[in-house]
Amino acid sequence: MSFTLYDYALSGNCYKIRLFANILNVEYERIAVEFYPGAEHRSEKMLQISPAGTLPILKKDDMVLSETSAMLFWMAKNFNAADHWWPENDVAAQAQIIQWMGFASDLTATIGQGRLHALFQTPIDKDKIVKGGRAALRKIEAHLTEQSFDGFSFLTGDKPTIADIACFPYVALSPDVGANIGLDHDDYPAIRNWIYALKSLNGFIPMPGIYAMHELKDHEIDYGAQKPFKTGAAQ
């Protein structure tokens, strides 16, 4: 196997790695860790693998990574991803990517925390988290709007990079935090179109809170071949 991923299906951070691996068509060994309710990621057994006590963990021989930015970078290089994911000879683009990878941590600290609270009632300063999450969405919305004026669909250009993968989950999952608190996508058209562009990539996979791409399974329905419902069909 190419690497081992200690994973939790509901985690947006773990999803980054599953998603990118699927886009790159890379197989890996997956080990489910009971983040909730068992808090297995903080168990002695898991702390011995990664003292950070977080998920995901990417392990390859003696290398253990606990930061998703590092994992995405390693995957892009190690699996010979197309150059646009990490433009090898474009230092300015790399700097932008690193900048947005840092922003992805802000998303985890706001929307990620707010979502855990909404699901599992973990204690948070809700007002601060919601304000922070909204500020983060506004920031990325403004940036994507400006990108669209130049004809670009992604964070740093016309093709996706590992920064788009890093920012995608918690932007897409923001409605999970709650309704009518400025975290629905209704207020953010550029974000909606960016999400659609990412979901349209070959190898896209969903996670709970991010619907499958049903649009792409276009199938023609032969309305003429249908028989009428019988009256009282429910009886």
Binding site: Y211, H214, I221, Q226, P228, F229
Partner: peptide
């Protein structure tokens, strides 16, 4: 058509339901 994400019911541009996936052979009223 616009389809509902819950059960996939399809509505055409007149907002009339044209397809219910649970009963693919039947024409919705």
């Amino acid at each position: 058509a616009l389809a509902c994400v819950y059960h996939g019911w399809h509505y055409d541009k007149t907002a009339t339901c044209r397809y219910i996936p649970a009963h693919p052979e039947l024409e919705p009223p």
